[in-house]
Simulated scan of single mutants.
Amino acid sequence: MKQLFGAVGRRTLLFFGRVYDATQLSVDSMYWLIIAPLRGKGLRWKSSIEQMVLVGVNSIPIISILSLFVGMILALQGAYVLRPFGATLYVADLVGVTMTRELAPLVTAIILAGRSGSAFAAEIGTMKVSEEVDALVTIGLNPTKFLVIPKLLAIIIMQPCLTLISDVVSMLGGMVIGMGLLQIDWLRYIRQTRDALILQDILTGLIKSVVFAMIIALVGCYEGFQVEGGAEGVGIHTTSSVVKSIFLIIVADLIVTTFFFYFL
């Protein structure tokens, strides 16, 4: 019994210690991202632009291909349900609204969590193991400003852009199915999609994408700073960053969706 309580106590202290560290990183990041620039401490825009290329531009092909397939799958599943009612035209409504409000930001976030979030953790973790992070502190550079903020700024800017690309490409995928299998005229499909969508649908997806972007960047960087024990530690925390990011993305998606459902 004594060993049981000891194990529970150690795990509880470890959990709250990690929560404290993650909270501190988040607060520091918000300071260097929002407050510090207002006080004349500029952002590292050159590094941020380099990260935008890595996070955003290089992710366009994979996000476009997967979004196209998701749009086609959603159209096929919608047609399966709507065909008995003679309402296959409303596949356009289903694909447009579902992708803009839910699936496009979610698919984009999951891809970036695996692609960029893991890269953040691996990069910072490698620097931590090789004592480069300690070297930054020694020469008077703040690790959060120097390492985290360019990544955070890049993904906050690029994730909504990638989500918009996912919106458009997924609707094209739905239109391909509508034209090829459901005999829906392409102009009619576009008009139906336009009539179904409202500005709130698009804004909902974009707001979600910003929330997801912050989760991916902060979790990836946090796991990188926690690395210990050489290359093995880098691998463990890189994997952990992906798992935790996806879990928190799903939780945040539920919270934001519930908020919009009741208040907007």
Score class of each variant (00 low, 15 high):
residue 1 M to P: 15
residue 6 G to F: 06
residue 7 A to D: 10
residue 8 V to P: 10
residue 11 R to N: 15
residue 18 R to V: 00
residue 18 R to N: 04
residue 19 V to N: 01
residue 27 V to W: 00
residue 28 D to P: 03
residue 29 S to E: 03
residue 31 Y to T: 09
residue 32 W to N: 11
residue 32 W to E: 08
residue 37 P to H: 10
residue 38 L to D: 00
residue 40 G to A: 04
residue 44 R to D: 13
residue 47 S to P: 01
residue 48 S to D: 05
residue 49 I to N: 03
residue 52 M to K: 09
residue 57 V to P: 01
residue 60 I to P: 09
residue 62 I to A: 05
residue 63 I to N: 02
residue 65 I to H: 13
residue 68 L to A: 05
residue 69 F to C: 11
residue 70 V to N: 01
residue 78 G to L: 04
residue 78 G to T: 09
residue 80 Y to F: 15
residue 85 F to R: 13
residue 86 G to V: 07
residue 94 L to N: 11
residue 95 V to Q: 05
residue 98 T to C: 08
residue 106 L to Y: 04
residue 107 V to E: 04
residue 107 V to M: 12
residue 108 T to V: 10
residue 109 A to I: 06
residue 111 I to A: 02
residue 114 G to Y: 10
residue 118 S to H: 05
residue 120 F to Q: 02
residue 133 V to T: 08
residue 134 D to A: 11
residue 136 L to T: 07
residue 136 L to N: 09
residue 140 G to H: 10
residue 147 L to M: 15
residue 150 P to Y: 12
residue 151 K to L: 08
residue 152 L to V: 10
residue 157 I to D: 00
residue 158 M to A: 05
residue 162 L to A: 10
residue 166 S to R: 02
residue 169 V to N: 02
residue 170 S to I: 14
residue 172 L to D: 03
residue 181 L to E: 13
residue 185 D to R: 06
residue 186 W to D: 13
residue 190 I to Q: 10
residue 190 I to H: 00
residue 192 Q to L: 01
residue 194 R to E: 12
residue 197 L to Y: 01
residue 198 I to R: 13
residue 200 Q to C: 00
residue 201 D to P: 08
residue 202 I to M: 10
residue 203 L to C: 04
residue 203 L to F: 14
residue 204 T to Y: 02
residue 207 I to V: 15
residue 208 K to S: 07
residue 210 V to I: 15
residue 215 I to T: 09
residue 224 G to H: 05
residue 225 F to V: 06
residue 226 Q to F: 06
residue 227 V to M: 13
residue 229 G to L: 14
residue 230 G to W: 13
residue 231 A to P: 12
residue 235 G to V: 04
residue 239 T to H: 05
residue 243 V to H: 11
residue 244 K to H: 06
residue 244 K to A: 13
residue 244 K to W: 08
residue 253 D to L: 12
residue 258 T to I: 13
residue 261 F to N: 14
residue 263 F to G: 05
residue 264 L to Q: 05
